[in-house]
Measured scan of single mutants.
Amino acid sequence: MQNSHSGVNQLGGVFVNGRPLPDSTRQKIVELAHSGARPCDISRILQVSNGCVSKILGRYYETGSIRPRAIGGSKPRVATPEVVSKIAQYKRECPSIFAWEIRDRLLSEGVCTNDNIPSVSSINRVLRNLASEKQQMGADGMYDKLRMLNGQTGSWGTRPGWYPGTSVPGQPTQDGCQQQEGGGENTNSISSNGEDSDEAQMRLQLKRKLQRNRTSFTQEQIEALEKEFERTHYPDVFARERLAAKIDLPEARIQVWFSNRRAKWRREEKLRNQRRQASNTPSHIPISSSFSTSVYQPIPQPTTPVSSFTSGSMLGRTDTALTNTYSALPPMPSFTMANNLPMQPPVPSQTSSYSCMLPTSPSVNGRSYDTYTPPHMQTHMNSQPMGTSGTTSTGLISPGVSVPVQVPGSEPDMSQYWPRLQ
């Protein structure tokens, strides 16, 4: 039975679970980093996980050691009161100082060594604690504590007292930064006198190289990059290397530039699409467009005044059976039934097929058609009795279509119309 579990990581490298990497692998990681390889490249070359490479390099940059820390136990506290007071002093002298600059000053002034120097995250935590204590304490208590930490007896009751030896409130920041720059020169002199001055200088240079600022491109470089971006948004590694040799930039910087440029292009394309949609959409909808001609068919113009009344309900007709019959029939052209047409008796099958359309009241044959006459024609229609054979009435077949029909004066039988409509 094995005491430890061995495995293979996602890159194909072998590791022992819970145990640190061998010293030979750690040394190779540092050597590759000094030669300029990126952590992701080191991870692929040595088949070590990216997190492990970053952790080893980060500890090497901070402490200069590649040895693993002790497994188990607690780390001794490195942010001692003396170190905290120095950090507060540096922050007062130059409020814009960075944590890694404070760390360098602690090393250069001999406050800490490589073994007990606090990390950048520890210094940031100390600065946050100082800021929170400043908010919790009152103004007087804060000034007393700062005077105690600074070891001075001057008056701290006013704002300019934060910067000793100065009279203009805006000047101390520059003086403090100048003092810090002077301390940086002392850093070089002190570290050069040490035993491991060369190694420390190499480590600091490598650290500065990794902690780079934003790349500033010249106009020629920007023009070359934009020209390549117009050709393709995704250049391959050969195109990037050719462009890197042409404009004297690292291939990694060119790759990052193209990634950022593609993101910018997507944002601009989104804005262009929004403007295009806004320009195509009308600002207001016309009133006429809300009524579609496919839904509402136009009603033909009436030929006679009587045809303006298109349904039985508008003429005072309360018989719903006839109203439904007229509205359900398709529109037909106007025609006239003459008196000489043969009077065919209704076929029983045809009569039964339209039995649902006729009223059940037996008085329908005896009703006159003056009910369908509009009010303004009552006088004219009353002067001509319906009993004469020459009287013409208008029957409504569908809305908007008038059918003048000659009705025999002897017997106005409704059943004569249905064979004609089939």
Score class of each variant (00 low, 15 high):
residue 79 A to D: 04
residue 84 V to I: 09
residue 4 S to Y: 12
residue 12 G to A: 01
residue 25 T to W: 04
residue 47 Q to H: 04
residue 99 A to I: 03
residue 80 T to K: 07
residue 18 G to C: 03
residue 6 S to V: 15
residue 7 G to W: 09
residue 137 M to T: 12
residue 27 Q to A: 14
residue 21 L to K: 03
residue 50 N to Y: 12
residue 139 A to T: 14
residue 72 G to R: 06
residue 59 R to K: 05
residue 96 S to M: 07
residue 98 F to P: 10
residue 66 I to R: 06
residue 114 N to C: 12
residue 30 V to P: 02
residue 36 G to N: 08
residue 40 C to R: 07
residue 143 Y to L: 11
residue 42 I to W: 01
residue 147 R to F: 12
residue 144 D to N: 10
residue 82 E to V: 11
residue 109 E to V: 09
residue 110 G to V: 10
residue 61 Y to R: 15
residue 66 I to H: 07
residue 82 E to R: 12
residue 113 T to R: 14
residue 22 P to H: 05
residue 111 V to F: 06
residue 50 N to L: 06
residue 7 G to R: 15
residue 16 V to A: 09
residue 102 I to Q: 06
residue 46 L to T: 08
residue 60 Y to S: 02
residue 78 V to Q: 02
residue 94 C to F: 09
residue 74 S to K: 07
residue 107 L to E: 10
residue 24 S to P: 10
residue 78 V to A: 04
residue 59 R to E: 01
residue 41 D to R: 06
residue 105 R to N: 10
residue 99 A to W: 00
residue 33 A to G: 06
residue 57 L to A: 00
residue 71 I to N: 14
residue 46 L to Y: 02
residue 96 S to R: 14
residue 89 Q to N: 13
residue 111 V to A: 10
residue 102 I to Y: 07
residue 89 Q to W: 10
residue 100 W to H: 08
residue 34 H to I: 13
residue 137 M to K: 13
residue 111 V to G: 09
residue 133 E to Y: 10
residue 17 N to W: 15
residue 18 G to V: 00
residue 49 S to P: 09
residue 119 S to R: 03
residue 113 T to L: 13
residue 147 R to W: 12
residue 147 R to D: 11
residue 33 A to R: 14
residue 17 N to R: 15
residue 127 L to E: 01
residue 148 M to V: 13
residue 144 D to F: 08
residue 145 K to S: 14
residue 70 A to P: 14
residue 103 R to K: 13
residue 93 E to Q: 11
residue 129 N to S: 06
residue 30 V to A: 07
residue 80 T to W: 02
residue 135 Q to G: 13
residue 47 Q to R: 15
residue 33 A to Q: 07
residue 34 H to D: 07
residue 17 N to K: 15
residue 16 V to M: 15
residue 94 C to G: 12
residue 70 A to Q: 12
residue 3 N to M: 12
residue 75 K to V: 05
residue 20 P to M: 02
residue 130 L to Q: 10
residue 88 A to W: 15
residue 79 A to C: 15
residue 32 L to M: 12
residue 22 P to Y: 01
residue 107 L to A: 14
residue 100 W to G: 06
residue 139 A to C: 11
residue 37 A to Q: 13
residue 2 Q to V: 14
residue 9 N to H: 02
residue 25 T to P: 02
residue 7 G to H: 14
residue 127 L to M: 04
residue 132 S to I: 10
residue 85 S to H: 10
residue 31 E to W: 15
residue 39 P to S: 08
residue 44 R to I: 04
residue 130 L to V: 11
residue 80 T to P: 05
residue 134 K to I: 07
residue 15 F to S: 01
residue 45 I to P: 03
residue 14 V to L: 09
residue 51 G to V: 00
residue 25 T to F: 04
residue 93 E to H: 07
residue 42 I to E: 02
residue 122 S to K: 10
residue 6 S to L: 15
residue 7 G to V: 07
residue 39 P to A: 11
residue 20 P to G: 02
residue 27 Q to L: 14
residue 87 I to M: 08
residue 58 G to F: 03
residue 47 Q to K: 15
residue 147 R to V: 13
residue 65 S to Q: 12
residue 60 Y to F: 15
residue 86 K to L: 07
residue 59 R to D: 05
residue 44 R to N: 03
residue 91 K to I: 03
residue 90 Y to I: 15
residue 118 P to L: 08
residue 32 L to C: 04
residue 148 M to Q: 13
residue 35 S to E: 14
residue 54 S to N: 06
residue 74 S to N: 01
residue 40 C to N: 04
residue 9 N to K: 01
residue 105 R to D: 06
residue 104 D to S: 09
residue 97 I to W: 09
residue 149 L to F: 11
residue 90 Y to S: 08
residue 72 G to Q: 04
residue 37 A to D: 03
residue 23 D to A: 11
residue 6 S to R: 14
residue 8 V to P: 04
residue 129 N to M: 07
residue 3 N to K: 14
residue 60 Y to R: 01
residue 33 A to E: 00
residue 136 Q to S: 13
residue 92 R to K: 13
residue 11 L to T: 02
residue 108 S to V: 12
residue 130 L to G: 08
residue 29 I to N: 02
residue 117 I to Y: 13
residue 14 V to I: 10
residue 93 E to R: 08
residue 26 R to T: 01
residue 13 G to S: 03
residue 2 Q to L: 11
residue 38 R to D: 01
residue 29 I to T: 03
residue 31 E to G: 08
residue 33 A to S: 10
residue 128 R to T: 04
residue 63 T to N: 04
residue 51 G to C: 06
residue 77 R to Q: 00
residue 21 L to W: 01
residue 98 F to Y: 13
residue 51 G to K: 03
residue 139 A to S: 10
residue 112 C to V: 13
residue 108 S to K: 13
residue 120 V to I: 09
residue 38 R to A: 06
residue 110 G to Q: 14
residue 99 A to R: 05
residue 84 V to S: 06
residue 65 S to D: 09
residue 93 E to P: 03
residue 105 R to Y: 08
residue 60 Y to C: 00
residue 104 D to K: 09
residue 33 A to F: 04
residue 61 Y to S: 07
residue 118 P to S: 02
residue 30 V to Y: 01
residue 100 W to E: 04
residue 61 Y to N: 15
residue 112 C to Q: 05
residue 71 I to F: 07
residue 21 L to Y: 07
residue 116 N to D: 06
residue 90 Y to A: 09
residue 61 Y to A: 10
residue 4 S to E: 11
residue 65 S to R: 05
residue 35 S to M: 11
residue 23 D to H: 09
residue 45 I to H: 12
residue 113 T to V: 13
residue 58 G to A: 15
residue 113 T to P: 12
residue 53 V to Q: 05
residue 48 V to N: 00
residue 47 Q to A: 10
residue 45 I to T: 11
residue 86 K to N: 11
residue 118 P to V: 05
residue 147 R to G: 12
residue 76 P to G: 00
residue 66 I to T: 08
residue 26 R to K: 02
residue 125 R to I: 00
residue 33 A to H: 15
residue 141 G to R: 12
residue 49 S to V: 03
residue 78 V to G: 00
residue 75 K to S: 04
residue 88 A to V: 10
residue 78 V to P: 02
residue 63 T to V: 03
residue 133 E to F: 09
residue 116 N to Q: 08
residue 2 Q to D: 10
residue 42 I to L: 01
residue 90 Y to M: 09
residue 81 P to C: 06
residue 87 I to A: 07
residue 9 N to W: 01
residue 85 S to M: 10
residue 17 N to Y: 15
residue 44 R to Y: 05
residue 112 C to K: 05
residue 128 R to H: 04
residue 147 R to M: 12
residue 101 E to T: 05
residue 8 V to G: 04
residue 122 S to M: 02
residue 113 T to A: 13
residue 76 P to K: 10
residue 85 S to C: 10
residue 2 Q to Y: 09
residue 22 P to S: 05
residue 121 S to G: 04
residue 86 K to Q: 08
residue 99 A to P: 04
residue 135 Q to N: 14
residue 56 I to Y: 05
residue 114 N to G: 13
residue 107 L to Q: 15
residue 21 L to M: 02
